[in-house]
């Protein structure tokens, strides 16, 4: 009992990265996608968000990378208010977040190296740094051999690894993964999740939205279940089923 308490204190002393304060999101002329969400995510956490389709998982993630903005409540990222983020500041915000999607979202006309390098080029990183950083990151995800291949020449699992490398190359505070294993076979799925866990163990916060019970059980960390835009379960260390 005392040990567990200590862990909690340690967790709570960590920096808050995301704070949802009474967040609501209503799409025009539609039912609320998110309804009064109160949630705190701290540095170094691995949070799995589960729930049925239409429960609000993707909307929650979109608010974080500012693809959508909340219609009510306040959302803080790294102590900065995200509501109505200005057009000018949006790209800078995006560079502090890495995103990974079910459909990989790689640039089809760029090879593996260029896809990862592009994320650095847009932030004005010097060429020398790009040349040294990109191969390192590709080495971490195990794709150094396929640097000159184009996305269509890779398997789904490999494409997702490229996407993860691209998300990681900025050294972002948070990685957001929206159903990253949705298009992958079980073996590749496992590899992707292990990669995300490895990244998390190196200190990056990971927020994962998933349908996949096996995946969430494998992670075995904080699980948040959404239903009709509301948080119905938030357990610090959980499995898909009992969440």
């Amino acid at each position: 009992m005392t040990i567990k308490k200590n862990i909690n204190i340690e967790e709570e002393s960590k920096k808050t990265i995301l704070c949802f304060d009474g967040i609501c999101k209503v799409y025009k002329g539609d039912y609320p996608a998110l309804d009064d969400i109160n949630l705190v995510i701290r540095e170094g956490e691995f949070v799995s968000i589960v729930g049925q389709s239409g429960s609000g998982k993707s909307t929650l993630l979109k608010l974080i990378y500012a693809e959508e903005s909340a219609t009510g409540g306040e959302l803080y990222f790294n102590d900065e208010l995200l509501n109505n983020l200005s057009k000018r500041k949006l790209p800078y915000h995006r560079r502090s977040i890495g995103t990974v999607f079910q459909d990989f979202k790689l640039l089809p006309k760029k090879n593996v190296y260029e896809n990862v390098a592009y994320a650095l080029e847009v932030s004005g990183v010097l060429q020398e740094e790009i040349v040294s950083d990109v191969p390192q990151i590709l080495d971490i995800v195990g794709l150094s051999e396929k640097m000159r291949k184009y996305p269509h020449q890779l398997s789904g699992g490999e494409q997702q690894k490229v996407a993860i490398a691209r998300a990681l190359v900025h050294a972002p505070m948070v990685i957001i993964a929206d159903e990253p294993t949705g298009n992958l076979d079980p073996k590749s799925s496992l590899e992707i999740i292990e990669l995300l866990m490895k990244i998390n163990s190196l200190g990056t916060t990971v927020i994962l939205a998933s349908h996949d019970k096996d995946i969430v059980d494998k992670v075995n960390r904080r699980v948040i279940r959404l239903d009709n835009g509301k948080i119905i379960v938030d357990c610090a260390k959980g499995k898909y089923k009992n969440s």
Binding site: K87, R94, L106, L107, P108, K109, V122
Partner: peptide, 13 residues
């Protein structure tokens, strides 16, 4: 879709 991806990785307009 490329433009969408560019925005996602933080490219300015």
């Amino acid at each position: 879709s490329e433009i969408e991806i560019m925005r996602l990785v933080g490219a300015s307009n």
